[in-house]
Design a protein around this nucleic acid. Sequence first.
DNA 1: GTCAAGACGGCACGTGCCGTTCCGTTACGC
DNA 2: GCGTAACGGAACGGCACGTGCCGTCTTGAC
Lengths: 194, 194
Amino acid sequence: MDADRVNTHTDARSETIRSATLELAQELGFAKLSIEAVAARAGVGKHTIYRRWPSKGALFLDAVLSSHETILEYPDTGDIVADLREQILAAVELLARPPLDGLFRSLLGEAQQDAAISAALNERFIAPQTQRTIDRLEKARDAGQLSPDLDLELAMSILSGPIYFQFLITAQPLTHDYIDRLLAALFAGLGPRP
Amino acid sequence: MDADRVNTHTDARSETIRSATLELAQELGFAKLSIEAVAARAGVGKHTIYRRWPSKGALFLDAVLSSHETILEYPDTGDIVADLREQILAAVELLARPPLDGLFRSLLGEAQQDAAISAALNERFIAPQTQRTIDRLEKARDAGQLSPDLDLELAMSILSGPIYFQFLITAQPLTHDYIDRLLAALFAGLGPRP
DNA sequence: GTCAAGACGGCACGTGCCGTTCCGTTACGC
DNA sequence: GCGTAACGGAACGGCACGTGCCGTCTTGAC
């Protein structure tokens, strides 16, 4: 993707703007966030913002993702279920709990209405996260812990989908217990055990 | 939920407004939709719209959901996998393909930023749909086609989650083949077969 | 050391839509 | 036939948009 579509500059002024954006987003929510308010809070002209980011959505995405580059690495203890559980819990604790939950939800919402945001979100967050999961699943498959003919991209959807569904669609709480029951059901399969 | 939160009036004028809303949403997308334009298209004063719906989002939700009351009923042939497959395909064909896909995506996006929309969407669409799935799953469990200790709400998340994930997050196409592979993997389970 | 070029903060502008108010007209219940 | 309520339409103040135009400050080439 075009590197200019979303600003990733590291100069101090860009950092100030990102901080002001995050502050205001926490205070007002994404919907009521305005470029004018960000400029005022950051002590910066509006031009300086428009020169760096093409839209409010792009600025917001960059601010949110830059603030937590934490790579949510995958543990590898050799036990795929335990490792998936740990990684999912870490992601849920970070993204589906205060203070980030509202911002992350807004980000996913905005991506539904702006193709550029959707693409940038995929490139900077979803795709890398997906790839790490697939890499870990591949090791597990090689170790005989997964069905040998399992499509790993499909497995990724199966693992992530119910979490996002709970987060975005039904707005039910993502408890540790839910994740344990989810993993158990997925590995056992829906059908009756012979 | 408060019945006034989302208008469901059936008078002719409300219907005209809903139609104008859908037309403009198709032409411009939800983001560029405005109450002023809807009022002009419908030949109606803005007050007449504000009297019926509290926000652009509420009007949009009502317009989209009212236009397709199609209840996406569940077939019951006795074969749970075949029935799930058919119902999922019907839902995907209706909501994830033109002309409704963009509108449905916008609706889910808006729900992430407006709690009232989220609640109304759940009440009018998500919850009923969920309940129909659970009812069908219960029959299947009683017939011994599902693991007897399966949590049916969890099963609902497991079935729907990957579809929504593909639709909202990765923006990958929802092919028939994908759905077949999804169902196969879910019923077989992720773990190795003994 | 000088100086041109560019980025900057600040201010103002025209535009579009918001949600509300007012006005004169129409439709309907009693 | 009369009063009430909803109506279409126009106008309102307000806000944020994105874009100009200032005068200042920074920076790098020579």
